[in-house]
């Protein structure tokens, strides 16, 4: 196995494209090293992208935030401006693992592992985040929800690397929230995760919304019906009931060691209500 630490993403992409064996990108490494140690993967090449330009920076731009691929969860949590604009996304990213894992783990890694239970992904999808991809054929941008293709699979092509994630500029009277269910209080994989992002008008009526669910289908799912259920409402009981029902309907989970199908469907609705209320309050609703 070879270990490389290039200083530009272009060089990194070339290394990946050139490698004939199995190549993996290392940023936080909190999943990669586990898979490596348990013999689940046997890489021929590991490309560490932490030293590439911009990989570890959070830039506030006119159109929103640009988050480098190797920015750790802890660094996200320490960025006051980002936390203020996208509290749900930051909270979700900060739920990944322990304080120890937070020092290393990245949202991009969380996205590229393509686990249906990834905590930051439903929040990113709800936020309408985009991924900037660098590859042998240049740059392209795609919606975060289009990155995972199935459990452990992404739509990225050989040699492609996510350079950064883009969070849009925050509209006024907007709020987001992410909640997950785990049996303990920490150190668990989400049994169900729900991200809600919404915008209100002056009267406190929801005008825009995006709702995404994690751990209830092969990939994180965006649920337009759930958004529809709360748009035009003040999150009254009927709207929340409709939201919960839409979320439950969008679930196609499995029974596994972490929870039953029945449990996941039920709890998706419960968490959607709770997350929506938090997002609503953050958007200035009462």
């Amino acid at each position: 196995m070879k270990y490389e630490r290039p200083t530009t993403l272009k060089a990194a992409a070339q290394m990946l494209a050139k490698e004939k064996g199995k190549a993996f990108i290392l940023a936080g490494g909190t999943d990669l090293l586990v898979r490596l140690r348990t013999g689940f993967i046997e890489p021929d090449l590991i490309v560490d992208i932490k030293d590439t330009a911009g990989a570890r920076s959070i830039q506030k731009t006119a159109s929103g935030f640009k988050i480098g691929a190797a920015v750790s969860g802890a660094e996200l949590g320490e960025n006051a401006a980002l936390k203020k604009a996208w509290p749900g996304v930051v909270e979700a990213a900060n739920l990944i693992g322990s304080k120890q894992v937070q020092g290393r783990c990245t949202m991009t890694g969380n996205l590229c592992n393509a686990s249906p239970a990834a905590d930051s992904v439903p929040a990113l999808v709800a936020a309408g985040a985009k991924a900037v991809v660098v590859g042998p054929k240049g740059k392209r941008t795609l919606a975060v929800e289009d990155v995972p293709a199935g459990p452990g699979r992404t739509s990225l092509k050989k040699g492609e690397i996510i350079e950064s994630l883009i969070l849009p500029k925050r509209a006024p009277k907007s709020g987001d929230a992410y909640l997950r269910f785990i049996p303990r209080t920490e150190m668990d994989i989400a049994v169900v995760g729900v991200g809600v992002n919404l915008t209100l008008d002056g009267k406190g009526i929801v005008t825009k919304a995006r709702v995404a669910l994690g751990a209830v289908a092969p990939t994180v799912v965006l649920v337009p019906a759930a958004a529809k259920a709360i748009i035009g409402t003040k999150l009254d009981k009927a709207a929340l009931d409709a939201l919960a029902a839409a979320c439950a309907a969008a679930c196609n989970p499995i029974d596994d060691k972490r929870g039953t199908r029945e449990f996941r469907i039920k709890v998706a609705g419960v968490l959607a209500r709770r997350a929506a209320r938090i997002a609503y309050k953050r958007a200035g609703g009462k």
């Binding site: 909190t30 090293l33 586990v34």
Partner: peptide, 16 residues
Amino acid sequence: TVDGRLTCSCLVLGAE
């Protein structure tokens, strides 16, 4: 700690 940040040393490569 790596550069002052808490981490699990089992999740860091020696080369890093």
